Amino acid sequence: MNYFRRAALCVALACATTAGMAETWPSKPIRMIVGFPPGGGADIVARVVGAELGKSLGQSVVIDNRGGANGVIGTQELAKAAPDGYTLMLTISSHVTNALLYPKAPYDAMKDFAPVSLVASSPFVLVVNPQLPVNNVAELVALAKAQPGRINYGSPGNGSTQHLFHALMNLSAGIDMTHVPYRGGAPMANDLLAGLVQVGFTTPLFSQPLLQQGRLKALAVTSKRPIAQLPNVPPIGDTLRGYEAEVWYGVIAPAGAPRAVIDRLSAEIARIVHAPAVRDKLVAQAAEPIGSTPDQFAAVMESELKKWSAVIRQTGVRAE
């Protein structure tokens, strides 16, 4: 048998094996890794989607929280898993920025994984301590330009999502607010409320009661459009043209997972997130349902990689 006949036979056998797996898959429970502790946004989205995915596939979807290192530990676990469709991960947008901030991570964020589907996205809210004499983004930018380096913004740590969102704002507005990194969101929020830092990005669910109590003041949301929870708060992009920055949630698999399995998962997830009951649960968490094809998800990750690479290069953002 010559080389070409052997190659053709191997391809035929591989296709048959993949097709057979797709027909019998899933025949056992599926593990969905979450790279963050229980109770956070990623965990909640994973449990909402995983419960419905289990129903539609006829097998339970078990959530496996592997928190640590901004999602790197859980992602490393996925990279080591067999590409058989039985181990997935609910990841977030830091999957892409980690590739830029942790160049020595034990995996390649773009090559070692197969995109399955975008699930949802969620904005942050730009808030200030009420003692800061500004009422909108334009006034904050004007004050920051008048007092370069004297306005402090807090984040949960160097290289965190909020750090990147602020860096993008500094870059977009041509201002120089000073970064104060904390070890987590709780101490940052406490100092923001106390006025030790004046500016921060917080989640809509965290912000809403504090805004109602007058303990924080909302200037803008990071999404393209206003959100249901804060309908009167405008997007930053209304003032800083082109500004948009959201946390997205998506499902990925190990590279090499059968395409037929990935396509089925993608279709199921897209259907699930737009089902009224699931949509309501996601919207209650300030997450906008999306659903996408694997190729659409891959395009989003490539676009995000380019965007944040430029921000990190121009602003010098570094991880811990």
Rank of each mutant, 00 (worst) to 15 (best):
A51G: 03
V125R: 10
Q147T: 11
S155C: 15
S121R: 13
P37T: 06
P294E: 06
M110R: 14
A284L: 09
P294H: 10
N129Y: 11
G174L: 07
N136Y: 02
R241I: 05
D112L: 06
A7K: 13
C15N: 03
H166G: 01
A260W: 09
G157W: 02
A194C: 03
E77K: 07
Y86P: 03
L143C: 13
W25K: 05
A69T: 02
H95S: 10
H163E: 00
A257C: 14
T222L: 09
I73L: 12
W308D: 02
L171E: 07
V96G: 04
D112C: 11
I227G: 03
M21T: 08
V180T: 11
T239Y: 08
R31L: 05
P106S: 05
Y3L: 15
S309M: 08
G250S: 12
S160T: 06
T178F: 07
A69N: 11
D112V: 07
E77M: 11
F201A: 03
P226Y: 04
A186N: 13
S160A: 11
Q131A: 15
V96D: 01
M177K: 04
V11A: 13
A14P: 02
R183T: 10
A69H: 06
V48N: 09
V273M: 07
V48S: 05
P276V: 12
P133Y: 08
R66M: 07
I73E: 06
G74T: 05
A255Q: 11
M1Y: 09
P123K: 14
I151R: 02
V180C: 02
S172H: 03
E304D: 10
A22R: 12
L216I: 06
G71E: 00
E320I: 14
L88N: 03
V261E: 05
G242S: 13
T203S: 15
V199H: 01
P103W: 05
I63Q: 00
E77G: 01
